[in-house]
Design a protein around this nucleic acid. Sequence first.
DNA 1: CGGCATCGTTAATGCGTATTACCTAATGCG
DNA 2: CGCATTAGGTAATACGCATTAACGATGCCG
Lengths: 365, 365
Amino acid sequence: MEPRKRPGRTPAPAGRTSRPRQAEVARLAGVSQATVSLVLSPKPDGKGRIISEETRQRVLEAARSLGYVPDPAARRLAAARNNLLGVFSFTATFPTDVQHSYYPFLVGVEREAAALGYDLVLFTGSSTGGAGAAGPDALSRVRLADGCLFIGRHTPRAELKRLVEDGFPVVHLGRREELEGVAWVGADYVEATSEVVGHLAELGHRRIVLVREDDDAPASSDRQRGFLEGLEAAGLPSGPTTVFRSADPQRDLTPERLRAWADEGVTAFVAEETDTGAAWRGLLSAVREAGLDCPTEVSLALLGSPPADLAGEPEPTGFDIPRPQLGAAAVRLLAALVAGEEAREPLVSCVFRPGLTAGPPRSHP
Amino acid sequence: MEPRKRPGRTPAPAGRTSRPRQAEVARLAGVSQATVSLVLSPKPDGKGRIISEETRQRVLEAARSLGYVPDPAARRLAAARNNLLGVFSFTATFPTDVQHSYYPFLVGVEREAAALGYDLVLFTGSSTGGAGAAGPDALSRVRLADGCLFIGRHTPRAELKRLVEDGFPVVHLGRREELEGVAWVGADYVEATSEVVGHLAELGHRRIVLVREDDDAPASSDRQRGFLEGLEAAGLPSGPTTVFRSADPQRDLTPERLRAWADEGVTAFVAEETDTGAAWRGLLSAVREAGLDCPTEVSLALLGSPPADLAGEPEPTGFDIPRPQLGAAAVRLLAALVAGEEAREPLVSCVFRPGLTAGPPRSHP
DNA sequence: CGGCATCGTTAATGCGTATTACCTAATGCG
DNA sequence: CGCATTAGGTAATACGCATTAACGATGCCG
């Protein structure tokens, strides 16, 4: 029987000059393609050095004279790894409304990814992305990468879980203990918040109120927990009235409300940081409208960093979230998962920021 | 003769769940791998053989339930396309020192890429010169994508040229006419700068000085050209003394220098925008130190947007670079190149910004 | 009723590289 | 000197997908 004709792809036009392949290097050096590959991709452990120095040089010379550059696609296909890490945020990665909110994380993510030799694929939850539909399986696009980093306060649990169950390496930036099996890296809000409360207590404040938004994200509840723990550690009362929770602090936090608290003996306020910074903004404007001076008449603290547009204001007492470090830690963890290693300690400490908005209470000498 | 053993790669561990392949989708749908490929990558021209609707749906259903995503490397290797566009910047894409410099571009890039159905790969080569990225072939990694967008004031010409010669679609964000064959999208600095000068001349300024950094990037020389053209168009003298060029404007731009100019009759200054904003900063502080009021005693204009940390200052007269639109235009151009179409008009107009730092000169009623 | 398009699907490739099993000579050893 | 070992290298895969010749099953027409 005749050998059947070759179906396959049309062979490349002979005349066309294209990038040199290993095969051409091999021909020029008078060796086989496999030898070229062995020479050009040396194994880290010196065990692979079975090619004689002479041949090695011949191959290297041939490769250089042809200007050979390995094809990354082929390389990655053969290695069964793409050296790609995904970054998925549930809002646009580059939001225009919430100015630059993820930027500091990305700084660390990019740097660490580069250091580890990974490139990044940016996915967006909001976009109607090309590869897949915007539907419920939008998340499956991330499988294109070797692993994926997720950023955002709110997370679709079910789909994430699906990825994890399939053995796809996933790291969440932000505490996600309630999602079984999802690796995460987070800031230690509990400890940091507690520390801020301790600082206020040391200054002499006896009644402190936490202002938070109406949001059940872990970042919020962690701060509340740290707040209560801090009160307790300082021996201060911690009733439910010490936490003011509002869906719209800028509306609900009126000057009257503030004065009422002051009359009750509240001398310090603590606000959580969110995307919008609504709690802090509400607090600031209420204090201003009430005509109270900070920090002589009232002390304020911000559990995080101030919004960028408030850069001109006096530096708030509170703590800084080491976002670049968090991003870097997340990438390290993800890379470890991709390499099949185990997850490690996920908490990154925050840095206390003395700031200028807290001082001793008035009645306290 | 016995069929020889299969050398090749060790088959994947049976128990391990890995990313689904077309073969698995095929098995689940009861068809062949080829059918899956035909269904999942439909030819643009409807000429291709058509798979029956029933089979099509079965395959799509199977693919969805498995969360199948095509392997970009394999796709690329098989000489098709990825739906991936690369983004490569010659400095870190998310720099720490020069805050947010590329961010506004990326906003447009991301949005447009999503709209056209592409995902983005952020090549992290330049930031730290990480693993294997330092070499002269650092750029070749971008070949994993269908095409690549390059951002940065300074560009390694040789390597970019190599990519272009090999027929790889490349678009540079920023004018690059001197690089033969490199497509680019840029802001029309010449026209915009000329317009700003015209505005100053109309206000009555007769002597205007341009402050620029010692940098030969096209963005700088375009502004200078526009500046000189603007002077000419307004019938103003344009000697070499009208351009002040300094490697460190914040040092060289002394209050004394400023007063000397004022004595010579200079009533307006124009600064270029750069990554660091050094020219503008130098100008501002020199004016302040010289005790001159702006805009009553001296008019200032900024050829671009002010640095983020000067957001509190009065809005500078000058123009805005429509960065998101530029990013979007670059992506559109790149997508066109990937599709094999021709390049089109690359210039995007800037938007004049009246601002508050320019007014009629003092001696002018 | 046989030839012959037509339709739907599959088998068999190729892309460029990495990885092994295997082969051949040269060398070592008792 | 005979056999085991090592050094140096090659052939034959596999990686996952796209492509296309070929094939079986119809339906159509003369």
